[in-house]
């Protein structure tokens, strides 16, 4: 491996990714000294990792591997308690912590007395994560943690990891070869090339928006824009109100609003809540806006929906507009145009 310099922010998830032979696993294993670098230094909180006994260092760093590596002869509870036992915790503290962890990673407590062979792959992986978190280490190393489970379980475990991270806020270094996984779970991604050359170290959005070179561009794939849609949420957009008026507005105001937006339809709200879409042709037959039939179905998205979901909704709506539902109140509208602008704007909105 060539020289590599990475700065990993506390409490963030950094993904190491790259083709086979790029040294991503080797890099990971250098952090807990399962591989010793021939030159250079690794520091945690400014302290060189070689400054203290290796066993002590490792007990402070959670370690999760693809094959999980559970001890087949120990029950799930005993597996989870591995590091606390080495640290000399008393029985009561270990039991309390084990129950807490089972709950945290979503393991039924009835499984605690089983042996690893009696669990499914997904359950075993959860135990692996629980075991790594047992002594509450500030750092978690994960080597292709979801590589051995099927795609459905993998997606679920990824979601669970993000949810878990929201609660525990560890500094996580995760190795994967799956770019979609990297984009999904990483706060920052280090893309390595064969020989350990760092091609780019950036946020997922930066990596997609502004690949550093041809290698990065090829690695992230041709559908970069589509992938970015997945990364951003509706709340990242600066959405406008659109052709929308309150139900108390006059017909003249309504027509005026449509003219300004160049649409043949109009949204009606009442007391902040969205009532529905009204067609321009229906306005001639009524005296009052409240009487107008709200014939067009309203397609709705949430603030935390991804732009990809928003796009999906827009594609299937009659008005080419998605209404942002902000906990029951009207939050604005999303159009294809606003999505395109949002992507152009880059990462600033994030």
């Amino acid at each position: 491996m060539s020289s590599l310099t990475l700065d990993i922010a506390e409490g963030s998830i950094v993904v190491l990714i790259g083709p086979s032979g790029c040294g991503k696993t080797t890099t990971l294993r250098m952090i807990n000294r399962l591989v010793e670098p021939t030159s250079g230094a690794i520091e945690i909180d400014g302290e060189d990792i070689t400054a203290r006994p290796v066993a002590e260092l490792r007990r402070d760093i959670g370690y999760v591997i693809q094959q999980v590596g559970l001890f087949p002869h120990h029950t799930i509870a005993t597996n989870i308690a591995t590091v606390p036992k080495m640290l000399g915790w008393d029985q009561d503290r270990i039991r309390t912590r084990t129950d807490e962890l089972a709950e945290l990673v979503g393991l039924d407590s009835s499984l605690l007395d089983r042996y690893p062979d009696e669990l499914s792959g997904g359950q075993q992986q959860r135990v692996g994560v629980a075991r790594a978190l047992a002594a509450d280490p500030p750092i978690l190393l994960m080597d292709e943690p979801f590589g051995a489970v099927d795609p459905i379980v993998r997606t679920r475990l990824q979601d669970e990891l993000l949810e878990l991270q929201g609660r525990v806020g560890k500094t996580i270094v995760l190795v994967t070869h799956d770019i979609d996984e990297a984009l999904k779970v990483g706060d920052r991604i280090a893309l390595l090339n064969v020989g350990g050359i760092l091609e780019q170290y950036a946020t997922p959005d930066e990596l997609l928006r502004d690949p550093a070179n041809g290698f990065v561009e090829e690695f992230v794939g041709e559908d970069r824009s589509i992938k970015r849609l997945q990364l951003k949420a509706v709340s990242d957009l600066s959405f406008n109100q659109g052709p929308v008026v309150d139900v108390s507005a006059s017909l003249a105001q309504a027509k005026d609003t449509m003219e300004r937006h160049g649409t043949e339809w109009l949204g009606v709200t009442e007391g902040g809540g969205f009532l529905g879409w009204v067609s321009a042709s229906d306005l001639d037959a009524v005296d009052d806006l409240s009487q107008a039939p709200r014939a067009l179905p309203a397609a709705q998205v949430q603030r935390d929906s991804t732009l990809r979901t928003a796009m999906q909704v827009i594609m299937t709506s009659h008005t080419s507009v998605a209404v942002v539902d902000d906990n029951g109140t009207f939050g604005g509208v999303v159009t294809l145009e606003s999505i395109r602008e949002g992507l152009e704007q880059g990462g600033e909105a994030l």
Partner: peptide, 18 residues
Amino acid sequence: VPADVRDAADGMGMSPVR
């Protein structure tokens, strides 16, 4: 003994004797 089990033991800071 599976290699991953040994790796996990080492990675968790288990001494070789243990």
